[in-house]
Design a protein around this nucleic acid. Structure first.
Length: 281
DNA sequence: GAAGGCCTGGAA
DNA sequence: TTCCAGGCCTTC
């Protein structure tokens, strides 16, 4: 169980969705009193945006787009946050001392807490844009549809015309958005497809199964989303519901829960993939 | 479409 | 001391 702290808080779509919901409930209607940048590296290349201009604006709603958190502010302004790998948005008492690796802090009128963005590895990003889609950050503009928005017919067609390895496609946010390394591996295992297989070589039947698996895995994780974050907070090192959820990810060398064969790992595109050589073809 | 870079903490 | 984890961007 050791070494799983980062895994448990790794923000994939379900964690981002849970977080966006919590932020929405806590901050909607609140007026931003101040915005302080402590580290400019978290802003996209091209310079720090006039982040001070968000002070005085009211939070209208907080939503999720892909793995981005979208904070809609009054005055047709949007504050975007991408958590990267280790990013956290924390609502903490204003009197609490700043945590290490805190890059950005918001305060609100008549709210004793402050909203801090901290990110030890600095893969996360914060950006400001107008509410016009053409002004959205590039990563947002290029987002492909989420699995729920694609028909199985069109998913099959799009996969069959690409030469890429199927897992590369699943991780490509412009092709389909929402899956990270963990859920890509889990979906492929449920669908019985090896990560290295070329997408054009996968049968229509299996591709349909894959789309279904992606939706199921994400939905299941969203249902557990809040609890995975809770697990992280109260993690005592003995067990966590989060791990039980994974059938292949992080289980290289262990036995497959379906057939007891040894889970193998393979590396490509700088990513580790875990799969069962017997269940996946 | 593949590969490297970003970045840091933790494990080996 | 070295290696590894990961999403996204840039470069080849």
């Amino acid at each position: 169980m050791k070494g799983n702290r980062f895994r448990n808080l790794m923000p994939e779509l379900p964690e981002v969705q849970t977080l966006a919901g919590e932020l929405h409930r806590s901050l909607s209607g609140r007026r931003i009193a101040s915005a302080a940048v402590r580290n400019e590296l978290i802003f996209p290349p091209g310079g720090v945006e006039p982040i001070g201009t968000i002070a005085g604006r009211r939070v209208e709603s907080v939503k999720r787009m892909g793995k981005f958190i979208r904070m809609n502010l009054a005055g047709e302004t949007i504050l975007w946050v991408h958590l990267g790998m280790t990013g956290q948005l924390l609502l903490r008492p204003g009197s609490a001392p700043a945590l290490t690796h805190t890059h950005f802090v918001l305060t609100f009128d008549q709210l004793p807490q402050t909203l801090s963005f901290r990110d030890p590895r600095r893969f996360g990003r914060v950006a400001l844009s107008s509410s016009r889609p053409e002004d959205f950050p590039a990563g947002v503009r290029r987002l492909g549809p989420e699995p729920w928005k694609v028909t199985s017919q069109s998913f099959v067609r799009l996969c069959r015309r690409r030469q890429a390895r199927i897992k590369s496609l699943l991780l490509d946010q412009t092709f389909i958005s929402g899956l990270g390394n963990i859920y890509a591996d889990e979906s492929l295992h449920r669908a019985g497809i090896r990560p290295l297989r070329r997408s054009c070589k996968v049968s229509r039947e299996r591709l349909k199964k894959l789309l279904q698996a992606m939706k199921e895995v994400l939905e299941e994780a969203i249902r557990r989303g809040g609890s995975s974050i809770d697990d992280y907070r109260r993690l005592d090192g003995s067990r966590g519901g989060f791990q039980q959820f994974h059938r292949v990810y992080g289980r290289g060398g262990k036995h497959c829960l379906s057939c007891r064969s040894e889970i193998r790992t393979v590396k490509f595109s700088g990513r580790t993939s875990a799969f069962c050589p017997r269940c996946q073809h």
